[in-house]
């Protein structure tokens, strides 16, 4: 499944597409919510690896507006629970991820994102 934690580390890699190629925009997505074990320690260690604005924008595309625009300094429980939900419980099952720069479409099918490119697109 494409959870938003995974989406946050995927970028367009079409030959020559090196700027404004992240985050991939969600289109026509089918979402499933699945409960996951709440692990605040994991969230705290993973947070520095997250691109915050990309996550907030993508969460909005997935119809979740629980995250603040700026990453808070105080990681209270309410924030961590929202973050947990956005990163780990929202599963994109079907849809498309579109590069904001070159508009390449990366399909998501059966919960699996397809990042493969045709030979001529490979950098």
């Amino acid at each position: 499944m494409v959870r938003l934690i995974t989406h946050n580390i995927l970028a367009c890699h079409v030959k020559g597409c090196t700027s404004n190629n992240f985050p991939l925009q969600l289109q026509g997505v089918q979402i499933e919510l699945r409960e996951a074990e709440f692990n605040p320690e994991f969230l705290k260690t993973f947070l520095p690896k997250i691109e915050w604005k990309a996550l907030v924008d993508t969460a909005k595309e997935a119809r979740d507006t629980s995250l603040p625009l700026e990453q808070p300094e105080m990681l209270d429980d309410e924030f961590l629970k929202n973050l947990h939900h956005v990163l780990l419980e929202i599963h994109i099952e079907e849809g498309t991820m579109i590069c904001p720069n070159c508009k390449h479409n990366y399909p998501i099918s059966n919960g699996i994102p397809n990042m493969l490119l045709a030979e001529h697109e490979v950098g």
Binding site: L10, H13, K49, G111, I112, P113, N114, M115
Partner: peptide, 18 residues
Amino acid sequence: VTLDSIQTSFINGFHPRL
């Protein structure tokens, strides 16, 4: 367990900050 499976060659499409 949760495995985040991605269809790609090696790590193509992973953000460079990884």
